[in-house]
Simulated scan of single mutants.
Amino acid sequence: MRFMMTLTMDPATAPTGGPSPQMMEDMGKLIEEMAKAGVLLDTGGLQDITEGTRIELSGGKQTVIDGPFIEAKEVVGGYAIIQAKSKEEALEWASRFLATHGEEWDITSEIRQIQEPPA
């Protein structure tokens, strides 16, 4: 089963200066472990919300809005797509991924199974 894990946070509570060198080292080690275990399919961090663009659809009309999105209370900061045997295994990997952030970050990971095309 494939799962997508997203990391969301309130941009107002993110540490200034971004991730610490220790966090990046810890995350790199975990990503390497996940790759060797054959679990990690893809991962990446996302650019700041000031670089984002939204496309909204309302009443059949599309509107393009460039960031920054000041009203955003939560933003997706990164993602990982993993291959796991169960939801429980996906939750274990997500928990370890969150732990690399330490106490300075207030983040949430949402884990959702990816719908597979019908056989």
Rank of each mutant, 00 (worst) to 15 (best):
residue 70 I to F: 03
residue 98 L to A: 10
residue 118 P to I: 05
residue 53 T to Y: 06
residue 80 A to R: 08
residue 17 G to P: 09
residue 31 I to Y: 09
residue 105 W to I: 06
residue 62 Q to L: 14
residue 115 Q to P: 06
residue 2 R to T: 00
residue 64 V to W: 13
residue 85 K to M: 06
residue 76 V to D: 04
residue 64 V to F: 08
residue 114 I to W: 09
residue 83 Q to A: 14
residue 60 G to F: 06
residue 50 T to S: 15
residue 116 E to M: 12
residue 101 H to A: 14
residue 52 G to K: 12
residue 89 E to H: 00
residue 94 A to S: 03
residue 57 L to R: 10
residue 27 M to P: 12
residue 2 R to Y: 03
residue 57 L to I: 13
residue 62 Q to V: 10
residue 112 R to S: 07
residue 25 E to M: 12
residue 47 Q to F: 04
residue 18 G to Y: 07
residue 117 P to S: 13
residue 11 P to L: 00
residue 63 T to M: 03
residue 77 G to T: 01
residue 84 A to M: 03
residue 85 K to Y: 02
residue 55 I to M: 15
residue 33 E to S: 07
residue 38 G to K: 08
residue 118 P to N: 12
residue 96 R to K: 13
residue 65 I to K: 02
residue 103 E to V: 13
residue 46 L to C: 01
residue 89 E to Y: 00
residue 26 D to M: 04
residue 113 Q to H: 05
residue 80 A to G: 15
residue 79 Y to H: 06
residue 48 D to L: 10
residue 1 M to T: 02
residue 4 M to I: 15
residue 39 V to Q: 00
residue 46 L to Y: 01
residue 14 A to T: 10
residue 89 E to D: 00
residue 93 W to M: 01
residue 60 G to D: 00
residue 112 R to F: 07
residue 24 M to I: 14
residue 101 H to I: 07
residue 47 Q to D: 09
residue 19 P to M: 10
residue 80 A to L: 15
residue 75 V to R: 02
residue 2 R to K: 11
residue 76 V to T: 13
